[in-house]
């Protein structure tokens, strides 16, 4: 992805992310989250990860956030927080923590050099390539993930069920 486009998209993503975290109303936060996810999907396409990008839209934005909004509407959690944030000391600590994260990563980046591959293989990032890796080297995690989903379904149903 070219630099100017990156910078533009980055600015938008940050704006959206901040909205998620800062806005008092949960519904607005959810919508901002959708925007963030879409923009990230664009990033993925720019990084030759086409399947992942599509999955991001379908699964994340299309299912997970929809589920969020569903629950918000069901339980009528639309009211804004009277004071959306916790006390000042905690905010200070949290912000400090955040800055620390960024600083750490920055330091790490300065110290380390990531090896770059000479060129990308043919069909990098498309379904066939992903599938090839998934069903050979990562077969066991794949199967375990299916079990995980089963467990999650059972758990969710059990937890949310109306007790007689």
């Amino acid at each position: 992805m070219s630099a100017p486009i990156f910078l533009l998209l980055a600015a938008l993503v940050l704006a959206a992310a901040l909205t998620v975290v800062v806005h008092p109303s949960p519904v607005y936060s959810a919508c901002a989250l959708v925007v963030t996810l879409f923009l990230l999907s664009v990033f993925f396409i720019g990084l030759d990860a086409q399947l992942v990008a599509v999955l991001q839209v379908i699964v994340y934005a299309g299912a997970i956030v929809v589920l969020f909004l569903f629950v918000i509407m069901l339980l009528n959690l639309t009211q804004t927080e009277p004071r959306p944030t916790a006390g000042a000391p905690l905010v200070a600590v949290a912000v400090g923590g955040g800055i620390a994260v960024v600083a750490l990563v920055a330091t790490a980046l300065r110290r380390l050099t990531v090896p770059t591959a000479p060129g990308l293989p043919e069909g990098f990032g498309d379904t066939a390539a992903l599938a090839r890796r998934l069903f050979t080297a990562y077969l066991l995690p794949f199967e375990l993930t299916s079990v995980l989903l089963l467990v999650a379904i059972v758990g969710a149903v059990g937890l949310a069920k109306r007790r007689p």
Binding site: V13, L14, A17, V21, S29, L77, G98, V102
Partner: peptide, 23 residues
């Protein structure tokens, strides 16, 4: 990597600071 670090930081701050569980 820098962008993702900043996004992560924003998310972390959100987890610690907001009071509405959905958010």
């Amino acid at each position: 990597l820098g962008l993702s670090a900043v996004l992560f930081a924003i998310g972390a701050i959100g987890v610690l600071v907001r009071r509405n569980v959905i958010v």
